[in-house]
Write a protein that binds this DNA or RNA. Structure first.
Lengths: 220, 220
DNA sequence: GTGGTACCGTACGGTACGGTTCGGCACTAA
DNA sequence: TTAGTGCCGAACCGTACCGTACGGTACCAC
């Protein structure tokens, strides 16, 4: 659902660009956040980055290639938040989940994430839209990697129980995000309660334990 | 989050258009679903609807006015699914919730809903984007009207318990939709499990009762 | 018939954008 | 010094689109 938390062992795999090219991509990203997809023209990017259009086309081949490069760049920029740690107590496991929920809320509400998701969604209708798939892959990467491992560790330690890991994760996601993401994508603003991510995260994790927790160790 | 279930007592308030104009809007909607926002040009709409561009501009004033009219038209097309019924038994209440969940899944996965949401999201970054707010209003209308009344009725009858109605609804929404909507918006396809809306709806409502149900009457 | 109105089909002006080309500058290597 | 390379800035081309204007047609009122 986002790109800013992609976990990959090799940072070069996603950002195989030179320093100068990364600067250009950063400029493009700022331009996108500031003015939306309409402002992301090749001339505008070249102007903002103090480079020529010729270089843009030499480096990224195409406008679509440039957009894909922006996505890849952003994915490689903010990477893993730290290695997975095996929780030893129920409280530690719960804290990990709360932290994950908090991170997810913060990431999805970020300017860059919203701008890139809007861009990908806006052109997802066209048949040649590989951008949406790209965003999904990176988002799925992050989610599958971090949350999946976390849930599995919790289950191995006997704090929670579920049949299908994917299903459990999606429920966790739903409890955390609710209609939050779509509303932000549509331009809505958050009310005071929703802006308190800490509280929201704790409530969501409480509910998750109520659904999947084992009363003996990690339940209510 | 969608427009296809707007509930309004006065159908004319949202579709104050002539028969001919509604035909044109219907053509525009089909065009949007077929080719995405890129295909929704004034010339294309005029061609598809067998009308002149001059008429488009006389009727809707502007291209943005035309898009807003499309949204309003779609909102007024599929209206309330029936008056709210006071559930008398816990089983009936649960059936109502399952039906609501099923409807929500079907609506949000519909072609028209996805196309319009993509359109609104794609241009939600610009400051003059009233389209996202329009979609939100209509979606919120539907949600607040139907689900809110349903939950309130269930609480009045003692089947569920909650402090904040808005909060309870958002949890319900999260349990039903999860990451379903955003993934579809990004162009993802559903796996077999997710395409079984009936099963998904029942599971979501089971989970909702586990969180908000009163064990005596409506709980697990 | 005559004027008015609403409409269609088409063509046009203006603009914006994607992509290409060209001249020029700085730097490097022989 | 000369040739080559990488890049910038700017001009350019073809295209697509928005919004408007114009000619022609059907219908209605009087």
């Amino acid at each position: 659902m986002t790109l800013t938390l992609a976990i990959d062992s090799d940072p070069q795999a996603y950002s195989a660009f030179t320093e100068r090219q990364n600067d250009v991509l950063e400029s493009a990203l700022r331009l996108l956040v500031k003015g939306g997809d309409k402002a992301l023209t090749t001339a505008g990017i070249a102007r903002a980055a103090n480079c020529s259009k010729e270089s843009l086309y030499r480096w990224f081949g195409d406008r679509d290639g440039l957009l894909a490069a922006v996505v890849s760049y952003q994915a490689s920029k903010v990477r893993a938040l730290g290695p997975g740690v095996m929780p030893e107590t129920a409280a530690a496991f719960r804290a990990h989940l709360v932290r994950f929920a908090n991170d997810l809320l913060n990431v999805l509400s970020g300017d860059m994430s919203l701008a890139l998701n809007r861009l990908a969604i806006g052109q997802a209708s066209r048949s040649d839209a590989h951008l949406g798939g790209l965003v999904l892959d990176r988002g799925r990467n992050m989610i599958g990697s971090r949350a999946g491992a976390l849930l599995e560790a919790g289950r191995a330690c006997g704090f929670i129980e579920y049949d299908d890991a994917n299903d459990a994760f999606r429920t966790l996601y739903g409890l955390i995000i609710r209609d939050f993401h779509v509303r932000l994508l549509l331009g809505d603003t958050l009310d005071a309660d929703e802006a308190a991510f800490d509280k929201q995260a704790q409530v969501a994790i409480d509910q998750f334990f109520k659904l999947y927790g084992l009363p003996a160790k990690g339940g209510v």
